[in-house]
Design a protein around this nucleic acid. Structure first.
Lengths: 155, 155
DNA sequence: TTACATTATATGTCAATACATTTAATAGAA
DNA sequence: TTCTATTAAATGTATTGACATATAATGTAA
């Protein structure tokens, strides 16, 4: 369905405005569908994102600060997200040897198992994007990269 | 900057997975920059979105339910967002004549003035997307429409 | 008309988030 | 060394959000 129909708006200031609204709308759509899939496993999309980052480093530990740099949403509280994962036994936390301010986080066996189980769901989620060909998906990604390539800092 | 650098991940399962992560990351990036611009005016992106929907109907009223259908993020609580706008004097709420369950919401003079002031900021925000040509912006929007064109319901 | 289902909105609740502040460790300059 | 700045992570707090439920009006079938 076109964005015009989805948000019941027929006119946009210009193609850029339309693209911006469509981007926000589509990201919400995708994020909500992911949240819905993860709900039965008692994981939020953010927790899932952190868990996958941990798996990406496994068996090496990663520090909280490095997790933040890899997160899709930088604004969220990585420290508390890790807390949640610890509470569920999906990760382990140990003091970093060389820097006692820092903390090493590693995904646990249970975390790896849960992710393995969720990999099938992830396929299902990615299939939502199968309306696009591989070439189109690459083109979309390139356009998004270009969109962000402003020199501006802050706001 | 490419998404690889931004989230420090060099490999993706496939082009679709990469596009999905890029979409979520870019939407957060855009949304955060908008929040940052709006902050001095004590408006959240969601409140701003509702205010613009109200202006789109002005001078006609719009019902809360119709606001929800136009919102970029359907999950948020439209009723409380409208509350916030009323509290700030940016909108007015009157009982709907023909259906006493419903409520008519109209943007106020103050709301219109605030939006007029913000239109310049909005230009600035849209300029973030000026890295793309008009054709590219349209292409991006079309790809997003296509991405959402799955027949699936729910998750 | 009476039931009952549906619709529109509001509210209660608890978790998640944003953002500022705190605590503690490290780095570097004087 | 001492002082100060910086960095890493945790915490406090107020706001926002999701989601279930409540309230009230409307529509509809018997």
């Amino acid at each position: 369905m076109s964005i015009e129909t989805d948000i019941k708006q027929s006119k946009f200031r210009n193609p850029h405005h339309k693209a911006a609204l469509n981007l926000l709308f589509t990201a919400n759509w995708l994020s909500n569908s992911q949240a819905c899939l993860l709900k039965p496993y008692d994981l939020t999309p953010q927790q899932y994102n952190v868990l996958r980052i941990l798996r990406g480093q496994y068996p090496n530990p990663i520090r909280v600060n490095d997790i933040i740099e890899r997160m899709l949403d930088r604004m969220s509280n990585a420290s508390r997200l890790v807390d949640k994962l610890l509470l569920k036994g999906l990760a382990q936390r140990t003091e970093c040897l060389h820097d006692r301010r820092a903390v090493d986080v590693v995904i646990s066996e249970a975390g790896l198992n849960l992710l393995a189980e969720l990999d099938n769901l992830q396929d299902h989620w990615e299939n939502k994007l199968q309306q696009l060909s591989s070439e189109e998906a690459t083109l979309l990604s390139d356009l998004l990269d270009k969109l962000r390539s402003t020199s501006e800092t802050s706001c």
